[in-house]
Design a protein around this nucleic acid. Structure first.
Length: 924
RNA sequence: GGGCUCGUAGAUCAGCGGUAGAUCAUCCCCCUGGCACGGGGAAGGCCGCGGGUUCAAAUCCCGCCGAGUCCA
């Protein structure tokens, strides 16, 4: 780390007369204007001295503080950028939620592959950090949802190649610190009290020097100078033990916690009271939490202590609280009783804000991904609300925050919350029933409910162990939850994680120039001319070649659209193209012959295939648009695959689709087709397009580059690389074929377009006509007739059962009975199925007769043996012996047994031996 | 995406190789002046679907479909 020391010696510090010091408490190095200062300013070295002693000229609300920050940086030549969604997985696949403002610009902008929306820029980015969930409410300063205010500058080195999307240096360390200093001064902070702590930063494969900015005990900002990337050969070893080397791009990544700043400006005891005082008032009222003045004072003093007791690093909350109580000279239990309701209220306010962000940004609850996180937060919030007895519905609480945050999809948000609440209630009811049965069982046996069962209940049924304890108590059973419960659950999940083998890159391709893509120029053209740049024979695949051309009309597989097929022809030969792939801009045509390197070829697409693919691709956009119109704005693409006969589109939606939804989507989609709307292709500047359309552009993935290709149909604009028809009318028709749930929150729509739609309709119609023919009715009458047939079929089954019983009773007259040690016995061959044998045997037994029945029906020998009560013959034993004679086995209870074997031929012999067997078994 | 659990009567579930059950709801009867309760009875099942193993599968195995849940 010492190699980095020089990195922190800024001219700005020199000019401003800063001193570099080492904190005796925390050992860190820091910079200060105050020559007498010894400590670094961070707890535990220093206290939260801003509480009751606000750090700025005025008290700010959250909105005022945000505006103060953004307008200050605007006045200092930064462009204000609108915040990104909290669902970071919309533009990157390595994280789920946005946890910092810099997430917005990773990886494409920070690596220099795409230009930033402005440079330098300022933003206040909503973030969600789930890892803080347990601390929320308790520590006085943790929130799961927060806004990170920031100013960013994106720089490239002077000696770097001119291959990046931005050039030169905007500003770096000195000006970053200066801006921070100036903003603090602007707000009225006492500059003498500010400390800049040296704290190297590492994260996400990048690293660099960084400062933490401390003021009155509060960490108000982090100034990160992201300038290195992970590199085993690198010169710098960072705190994560990895080596790093400098990058060509270097990025100013700052973070100013909006909530912290607001808090420090107000000097309230906890951050929560500063940022949503109205929500807290409402919840207190609603839950009936009222404190006396004396209690208020105690809570206030306790909160101040919680601040610097650093509870988030204390495992045992009880012990931490006891210490607080000790310092305040009050009883720990009393303090807990006083604080807990407040902590719950703080947490509820925070969680509702988190949910408002999540649902406002159109995250749909699910069993996977961000949707699962949303579900977890919602359920946790629901439990908290129930615990403390808030009777306002959850959707209203979330809506309060959504309104404050300015979301306009509030109706959908409420709908989602209500749907999720209902699902959770059903899970709880299911769980309760399950636990009740289990508790009653263990109470009977006087055993405690074992930990295995607790884990099973939680892991497989989502039942919190606390709930099991409660219910067990009601039933007089006991359950003890071990301290390491959740790690025991985690153990159950320990398993090998699948690692996908990376496909080996073909080095030979890297030397070739990017193929010029003709398919965007005129999507209707199907012929072209090109020069063969190179041909590779495919290893281990006789007669297969990869052909690279200088330009091509062939669309390579991508964006869910399969590759074009067709031919490449020279004067001498024609080869078939069976697949087309793209590797870093080089289009590779797989062919069944070698057209010859350097040859001039004419390419011809399989027109029919391409047309079908185009129709299905455009139809996919239309169906998505229709689904959004019918189901709501939260609907977005979660995946898509086009084909020649059908295509499928996965959409996010929080309820199962019903037939009615599907018919409406289909109707709207076909209206769009009939309106014959133009399908417009454009190549706008990416940042302009983003500013205009937001992230809904990228439902099919994010392409790199300065410019992106967009496809516009009505008000639906998508970044899309596929080929499309000119107007929606060219699709012809869209027929939805089926829907299926892919996962909770995602529905798959399968549909056919154009002639494929007609074919699909004809197929289903054909099936209906076939069915009608079989039933000998008109197609319209098929449903009613099928129902009638089914009902009649069931009735016949019952009639058969009844007649069988009657038949069995009729057969029960034992006039052929033989005597087995004083009991009559009927030994017969019936050649009926097992049900009939059983019924007959039952009837015989009811008449006091031993029944030994054999059947050769169905290709195997079967026996049923029934013995009346009080006759000392074990039916199972008898069956066993008889079955052995036909090469099988059997068994059953002593009064009624069944068996059989494959040798039908010896069935009669076996039956003949039955009387002896009966006697033998009786006497045994 | 991975793990686990579960699909049996209208509902909730038991049965886990050998004749498909319980409770509630429904219908009928009894008890009552009437209601609640109580008693008696009836009706109600492609045991999710498709394969396999077996003399025999609701039950065991495999696949599919569906529901739920935990984890990333």
């Amino acid at each position: 780390m010492s190699e980095l020391e020089a990195e922190y010696r800024l001219d700005y510090f020199e000019e401003e007369g800063f001193h570099r010091k080492q904190c005796p408490v925390t050992d860190v190095h820091f910079w200060t204007r105050d020559p007498d200062r010894e400590t670094c300013g961070e707890p535990p070295a220093d206290d939260y001295s801003f509480i009751d002693n606000p750090g700025f000229d005025e008290a700010y609300t959250l909105a005022e503080m945000r505006e103060a920050f953004l307008s200050f940086f605007e006045a200092n030549d930064h462009e204000r950028i609108q915040p990104y969604p909290v669902a970071a997985n919309r533009w990157r696949d390595d994280v789920l939620l946005t946890q910092a403002s810099v997430y917005d610009f990773q990886p494409l902008v920070t690596s220099g592959r795409s230009p930033p929306p402005a440079n330098p820029l300022t933003i206040s980015q909503p973030c969600i950090r789930m890892q803080d969930i347990d601390n929320v409410g308790k520590t006085g300063r943790h929130t799961m949802a927060f806004e990170m205010m920031a100013h960013h500058a994106f720089n490239t080195r002077e000696d770097a190649d001119n291959e990046y999307a931005y050039e030169g240096e905007v500003y770096w360390k000195d000006q970053t610190v200066e801006l921070c200093d100036q903003f603090l001064e602007h707000m009225g902070a006492d500059l003498e009290e500010i400390t800049y702590i040296e704290d190297p930063w590492v994260g996400g494969g990048n690293a660099g020097p960084a400062f933490e900015v401390l003021y009155r005990g509060a960490e108000l900002a982090t100034l990160v100078f992201m300038s290195m990337e992970q590199d085993p050969e690198g010169n710098y070893e960072m705190k994560d033990g990895n080596r790093y080397s400098p990058m060509d791009t270097y990025v100013v990544d700052t973070g100013y916690g909006l909530e912290r700043w607001t808090w420090v400006s107000q000097g309230t005891a906890t951050v929560y009271e500063a940022i949503y005082p109205d929500a807290i008032e409402f919840l207190k009222d609603n839950a009936g939490v009222t404190l006396s003045e004396e209690e208020e004072d105690l809570v206030h003093r306790a909160a101040k202590l919680s601040g610097y007791l650093d509870i988030d690093e204390v495992d045992d909350l009880t012990a931490a609280r006891a210490e607080v109580a000790d310092q305040l000279d009050v009883d720990a239990d009393e303090l807990t009783e006083l604080l807990e309701p407040l902590e719950t209220i703080y947490a509820i306010a925070d969680h509702c804000r988190t949910l408002a962000y999540m649902f406002g940004d159109e995250i749909v609850p699910s069993n996977v991904g961000t949707g699962y996180l949303a579900r977890m937060v919602l359920r946790r919030t629901k439990r908290l609300v129930d615990d403390i007895g808030v009777d306002a519905p959850l959707d209203e609480l979330v809506d309060m925050q959504a309104e404050r945050l300015g979301y306009d999809n509030r109706d959908t948000i409420r709908d989602i919350v209500r749907t999720e609440e209902r699902k959770y209630r059903e899970t709880l009811e299911r769980g309760r029933r399950k636990v009740e049965t289990l508790a009653a069982e263990y109470a009977d046996r006087n055993d405690p409910i074992p930990v295995d069962e607790l884990i099973e209940l939680y892991d497989s049924h989502g039942i919190q162990p606390g709930m099991v304890e409660d219910i067990a108590g009601e039933y007089g059973a006991t359950a003890t939850v071990p301290d390491d419960f959740y790690s025991l659950v985690a153990d159950r999940h320990a398993g090998a994680d699948a690692t996908a083998a990376a496909e080996g890159h073909d080095d030979r391709l890297t030397d070739l120039p990017e193929t010029e893509k003709l398919f965007y120029d005129d999507q209707e053209r199907t012929e072209f001319e090109a020069v063969v740049l190179d041909v590779f024979e495919r290893d281990g695949d006789e007669g297969a070649y990869d052909v690279v051309l200088d330009q091509t009309m062939f669309y390579p597989e991508g964006g869910g659209q399969p590759a074009d097929h067709g031919t490449l022809a020279t004067d001498d030969a024609t080869v078939r193209v069976t697949d087309v792939q793209k590797h870093d801009g080089v289009v590779v045509h797989r062919t069944d012959g070698d057209p010859g390197t350097g040859e001039f070829v004419r390419g011809q697409l399989d027109v029919e295939r391409r047309r079908r693919l185009m129709r299905h691709h455009t139809a996919t956009h239309v169906v998505g648009l229709a689904a959004r119109q019918v189901l709501g704005e939260h609907v977005r693409q979660a995946g898509a695959q086009k084909g020649t006969d059908s295509a499928r589109l996965d959409i996010t939606h929080y309820e199962r689709l019903e037939r009615e939804d599907v018919t409406r989507i289909e109707a709207v989609a076909n209206e769009i087709v009939m309106e014959n709307t133009p399908v417009e292709q454009a190549w706008p500047d990416r940042n302009e397009a983003e500013a205009e359309h937001g992230f809904d552009l990228y439902q099919g993935g994010i392409p790199p580059g300065d410019q992106i290709r967009t496809i516009t149909i009505d008000d639906d604009v998508q970044a899309c690389g596929g080929t499309h028809v000119h107007r929606t009318g060219d699709i012809g028709a869209i027929k939805l074929l089926s829907t299926e749930p892919v996962q909770d929150g995602v529905e798959r729509l399968t549909f056919a377009a154009g002639d494929a739609a007609v074919e699909a309709t004809q197929r289903t119609e054909g099936a209906l006509y076939d069915a009608a023919e079989v039933l000998d009715v008109t197609p319209e009458d098929v449903p009613a007739t099928a129902e009638r047939f089914f009902t009649e079929w069931k009735e016949r089954g019952k009639t058969i059962d009844r007649l069988r019983t009657e038949l069995a009773e009729a057969r029960a007259s034992a006039d052929d009975a033989i005597d087995i040690d004083g009991t009559p016995a009927a030994v017969r061959r019936l050649d009926a199925d097992a049900d009939e044998l059983r019924a007959t045997a039952n009837a015989l037994v009811d008449n006091g007769t031993i029944a030994v029945l054999g059947s050769g029906a169905g290709g195997s020998a079967q026996f049923v043996v029934g013995v009346p009560d009080g006759v000392g013959i074990n039916a199972g034993e008898v069956v066993g012996r008889l079955a052995a004679a036909v090469g099988g086995g059997g068994g059953g209870p002593p009064d009624f047994a069944q068996g059989g074997g494959p040798d039908v031929d010896t069935l009669d012999d076996a039956l003949e031996s039955a009387p002896e067997v009966l006697r033998a078994v009786h006497r045994a």
